[in-house]
Amino acid sequence: MDTLNFGVLDPIKLPIAKKLYKAHYPAGKPKRDERILTLTRNQSLSALVRFRTIEHYRLMTGMLVLPEQRGAGLGHQLMTYLEQGELKDGDYCFALSHLESFYSQHGFESIDEDSLPNPLKQLFSRYISGGKSLLAMRYIDPR
């Protein structure tokens, strides 16, 4: 049976996270001021997600499940962990269009770009003007 552990990335391990993103998600560039949560499977780092603070809003970004670990439900398990104590009502994410149903299963709802707060709207506009097919989504805490 697999042993799964969740936690906050120790800042000393930021270079490991940077290396993983560079290899598997080059657009994702983890920074020291971000909150990075991890899922380890059998003591091996398997998934990461970052939270950026932009003014007083939080943007969940850069979710990465290592390619060799995909298909095992780890993304769903990480999201379930986040729902239990990390995600807050009003957190946002910019989801790739094909992942809308994935994030919807975990409390995110698609919103119109005009519903984004201005600092996030500017960032979202910049991303989509670069050709990315993204949806703006907001977390609605069911509690």
Rank of each mutant, 00 (worst) to 15 (best):
M1E: 03
L48H: 05
V8W: 09
G7F: 03
I16K: 11
L78D: 02
P26A: 11
E86W: 14
P117F: 01
S125R: 08
G107V: 03
L134E: 12
H76K: 07
P67M: 04
I36Q: 07
K132C: 01
F102I: 07
Q84M: 08
L96H: 05
I111G: 05
Y127K: 07
H106E: 10
T40H: 08
A95G: 01
L82K: 02
L9P: 11
E113C: 06
D10W: 13
I111T: 06
L59K: 06
L120C: 04
L20N: 06
E55A: 11
S101G: 02
G7A: 00
L37D: 10
D2T: 14
G90R: 09
N118L: 03
L99T: 11
Y139K: 00
L87I: 08
P142C: 04
G73W: 01
N5S: 10
Q43N: 15
M79P: 01
Q69G: 10
G71Q: 07
K29Q: 08
D33L: 11
M137W: 08
S110E: 15
L96V: 15
T80I: 07
Q84E: 08
E109V: 08
Q84I: 00
I36R: 05
P142Y: 10
A95N: 04
K22L: 07
H76S: 11
L66Y: 03
L45H: 10
L9T: 01
L45D: 04
Y139M: 00
H56P: 02
S110A: 13
A23W: 06
T3Y: 06
D10Q: 09
A27R: 04
T3L: 12
I140T: 12
H76G: 08
I12Q: 12
S104F: 08
Y92W: 06
D2I: 14
K13A: 14
T40P: 08
F6H: 09
K88W: 11
L82P: 12
L20C: 06
V49T: 14
L45P: 00
T3A: 10
S104A: 13
G28I: 02
Q122W: 03
F108C: 00
D114M: 05
Y57Q: 07
F102Q: 05
S44R: 14
L9R: 01
Q43K: 15
Q69S: 13
N42Q: 13
K29T: 14
F124T: 03
L134A: 09
E83A: 14
H106C: 01
A23K: 12
F51R: 08
F6L: 04
H106F: 13
D112V: 02
R50I: 07
T61P: 03
T80G: 15
S46Q: 09
G7N: 06
I111K: 09
F108N: 03
F102W: 04
A27K: 15
T3D: 06
G71P: 02
Y81D: 06
L39W: 03
R70E: 09
T38A: 07
V65E: 10
L116W: 08
G85V: 04
T61A: 09
P26R: 10
E100R: 15
T53S: 14
